[in-house]
Design a protein around this nucleic acid. Structure first.
Lengths: 204, 204
DNA sequence: TAGATTGTTAATCGATTAACAATC
DNA sequence: TAGATTGTTAATCGATTAACAATC
């Protein structure tokens, strides 16, 4: 089986999100044209992307929304619920620990950590903050494969190393620094300042 | 002047972030090779990207770190401080209002809004939460051009419309929905669930 | 000088789009 | 049937990389 380009994979969650939103609004079918207008992607590209994985549409009528949602969930492996660990209970980690937006999208925060003794044992949402020193055994014992890093930049690489040691294979990094990880570990970056700087170039 | 591709612009903030980090660590010069290893981008690409804007390096020695930082700040228009408005004071808006990571990166949160009467008038960080009904005149009067949307999905498009009406030209959208805005308004999306879904495809 | 590294060219590689037969 | 829309092909478009003369 040939490898699907990552740029295609990166668009699938956007399709899935839009389809779920359409479903909530009562749509039962949609077309590549309609979907493309909603999310600003050309109809041809949507059809080409989806065709990498199968024939999900019908000529003349388009795509069945619940069916395509199910297929995309299977493709992206979010037809299950992944446990996620959050490291760093500052404001951002706190917000992620309580984030409602993971519901029905394949994720559930399962444990949260901080290295500050003053925070360890405190409650955040449904969780008791655990000591960061127990991170590796706790994550390994729970079989957790996904983590979010919300610690300061200077601590992020060390945390990433420990997560790798604990068996984590996917990291969502909120710390403003590029991480070094083995090739089989995936990293995505979220940095609001970078998001803003990508736009100020166009402002005068 | 020919238009620089957006994909190049989108890498510049990453270069800038890495250079600032190198500077903190005491580096005075770096090379495209060294920088590329830190951030996982090929040296040729870094040189090609930078060459769109001028000749910033020296053969044999590479780039002067403070000089390149200054140039990138000028290019990205973050050689100043932009005032930013935050709409929606849930956990995420709260975290952004108090976010320390904007400092020295060209941004300062200047005002925050919520539509919940129970929250209006409360304090978050250094700010008093303002009534969302005053959003348009307040943003317009302050000349604010950048905003972050942290409201629920079903309210986000309406908020975006008001921001456009108020003169905002750049929106960082944390709501899990694609926004429709005029062509001269820029939008960047931050959605942790999408970040995670881009990785679970590769996990089994 | 010798070694290192830039900026740039040309070649390669990959992604997007236009167009259309197939068919619901 | 007529209209709509898919999946796919081929053409176009754009981005990345390799290589190297220039030069610090």
């Amino acid at each position: 089986m040939r490898t699907i380009p990552d740029i295609i994979i990166s668009r699938l969650p956007v399709y899935l999100r839009a389809l779920c939103y359409l479903q909530e609004q009562g749509y039962h079918t949609t077309s590549s044209k309609e979907l493309g207008e909603k999310i600003g992607i050309s109809p041809a590209q949507i059809r080409k992307d989806l065709s990498q994985f199968g024939e999900f549409g019908k000529q003349g009528t388009g795509y069945n929304v619940p069916f395509l949602i199910e297929k995309l969930r299977q493709i992206l492996h979010v037809d299950r619920v992944w446990d996620v660990a959050v490291i760093g209970m500052g404001d951002m980690g706190h917000a992620l620990a309580r984030y409602q937006g993971f519901t029905n999208r394949g994720f559930r925060v399962a444990m949260v950590f901080d290295s500050d003794p003053a925070k360890v044992g405190e409650r955040v949402g449904d969780f008791i903050i655990q000591d960061a020193r127990e991170m590796v055994p706790a994550i390994r014992a729970a079989g957790i494969r996904i983590a979010m890093i919300c610690v300061p930049a200077q601590a992020a690489q060390e945390v990433a190393d420990k997560l790798v040691e604990a068996g984590v294979k996917a990291i969502l990094n909120y710390a403003p620094i590029s991480l070094s990880v083995p090739a089989d570990v995936h990293v995505q970056y979220i940095d609001p300042a970078i998001g803003l700087q990508r736009m100020t170039y166009y402002l005068d």
